[in-house]
Write a protein that binds this DNA or RNA. Structure first.
Lengths: 334, 334
DNA sequence: CTGAAAGCGCTTACAG
DNA sequence: CTGAAAGCGCTTACAG
């Protein structure tokens, strides 16, 4: 109301008739303060709307209590990862700030480095790829941890990019009698897309089934539609393994446009368990990926690093197959 | 490498053989410094990896150069809004930090207030509803601006929640001969959902067409599916106005389960132009909402407030109708 | 063109 | 149980 600058701890001290030290002790609960003094200080602080200046506190304590989470904001599933990470961080008493950095890998790396040395964060978790130079190996600087399903730099990424269930798709469908396959892939600079493509190629090779090859190369639905439109008339019966659900819904559309039924002429699998996949006609067989839990685990890892503890052993799988209508009747191997 | 704490401007000064003042002037480009001195300072700063401690700078200048963007991270379209807002902020030389705050309105309000008085941000833009108490009216404190399509508190929200195009849906379909309507609504505590419901009710009343009422009340696809499954057998021919595309895809599924064709037995409209809507069978007539531009405009508004300028006059509409297959042949009124 | 000094708001040994 | 004083790293009048 009155002045134009927010009240400081000095204001509280003056009004409460105590020292700034006592205010600090009373409010942070650290020093020993008599109950009555603490009471008075808290009342004054409340009444004048005092809130500590975090920049000042952080500068003094060299502990900001803040963690940065970096995301590219491109995919819905990043949301879930961020939420999982924030959840764990908050439970541990940290505040998280999400920085959405699009732009190139090099720029992201720069920005991440800035955040790391800016002294505002105690740790940084990134869900988008950065160059290895941004990743801290020692404890002399702010720890930067990368937990990403997508990696433009050919560096491995862990369970979120795990594509082993794609082998189960191919094996189960082959078991059910399907002899001809097609993979509609995502962009090659994504570790997840690469892993799926490689798993696909290994599976068709191992099982000795026919493959019409790997097509696609982008994530959007239109790519899936075009992939089907480009198929020869005698392609069916065909099992289409799409790299995600968006591609799969495009495949569905393309099949309808060509008069092919699913399942029937085509069977189809997706990936990610997007919300619409349960309601398409037919509904999509897909992989449910627990991005939220993936985010939680990544944050637990960062927390362990901060505390110099051993990383928690990771338990249940993050992925599971959702058999639905688009694959027709199958006898799941697992 | 060496010490465990990052280099400070004092370190740079010592090594470069100048004062801390000169380092500051050289690096911020503010004071008058000779070219050679500036050169040397910058080289030293670079060589020892100096980066200013933002907390310290912020405390001194009382200008953080940072803006907070608050989101709930619940909807995909929030992403686009955040990106639009960040884009505008960056262009104006600000860094934005995205805080995702789920929890209740009261808690969000508290957290927002903390951010506002924490002294770290020059302005705050929230895309999720907060209580009016968090919204600053004067310039004595950090400006907090709410730009949300969703508002739990019955306070108006502007163009993102504008539902007037729903009237065009109903009018155009009535013009095309449809006589019976149904609205599958979203949750009532969303301003956008309320606006759509009210616009629907006004439209059917004005046009004198039959309405089977307003059903639904949640956003997910399953609600749309259930709405159709609950319909009497003689409901078709029926025009279904769904409050968003997720509900619409559920309606599509429900219709298929009952053996009803779309368009034919049912015509259907959605809202938001979700990416899958172009690929469902039939594709969804919907409203394209330019969330990214909505985010840009909101940030321009905040920036104008910060600079005590007049808010920029807002130009083109944020919404437009996408006529697709789910409404069958119509002659758009507009 | 350059530097010594003060101060942003807080916390924390230290002394009483 | 309480307070005076120092200092976190920076910027900025001010004096030279």
């Amino acid at each position: 109301m009155g002045g134009s600058t927010p009240p400081t701890s000095r204001d509280v001290a003056r009004i409460a008739g105590v020292s700034q030290t006592t205010v600090s002790y009373a409010l942070t609960g650290k020093g020993a303060v008599s109950a009555s003094t603490r009471q008075r200080v808290m009342e004054v602080a409340e009444s004048i709307g005092y809130r500590p200046n975090l920049a000042a506190r952080s500068m003094r304590t060299r502990r900001s209590g803040r963690l940065a989470v970096i995301t590219g904001m491109t995919f819905d599933n990043q949301l879930a990862m961020v939420q999982g990470a924030s959840e764990v961080a908050h439970a541990a008493g940290y505040v998280t700030e999400t920085h959405s950095i699009d732009e190139t890998v090099a720029e992201r790396t720069d920005r991440t480095l800035e955040l790391a040395v800016g002294g505002q964060y105690e740790g940084i978790l990134t869900f988008v790829p950065v160059l290895p130079s941004a990743l801290s190996s020692d404890r002399s600087t702010t720890p930067v941890l990368a937990a990403t399903a997508f990696d433009e730099n050919m560096h491995s990424t862990g369970e979120l990019a795990d594509a082993s269930l794609l082998d189960v798709f191919v094996s189960t469908l082959a078991e059910a009698g399907h002899r001809r396959f097609l993979h509609v892939a995502g962009p090659d600079h994504y570790a997840s897309a690469r892993a799926r493509r490689e798993t696909y190629l290994a599976a068709v090779e191992r099982l000795g089934v026919e493959s019409l090859g790997v097509v696609g190369g982008e994530w959007p639905a239109e790519t899936g539609r075009q992939a089907v439109l480009a198929l020869p008339d005698d392609a069916p019966p065909l099992a289409v393994i799409a790299a995600n659900d968006h591609l799969a819904v495009g495949v569905l559309r393309g099949a309808a446009e060509r008069g092919w039924t699913v399942p029937g002429d085509l069977v189809l699998t997706g990936w990610d368990n997007a919300d619409f996949g349960e309601y398409t006609m037919p509904s999509l067989t897909t992989i449910d990926v627990d991005f939220r839990e993936g985010g939680r685990r990544a944050m637990r890892l960062l927390l362990a690093t901060l505390r110099d503890e051993d990383p928690p052993a990771s338990e249940s799988p993050l992925q599971r197959i959702m058999w639905r209508e688009s694959t027709g009747p199958v006898a799941p191997l697992d």
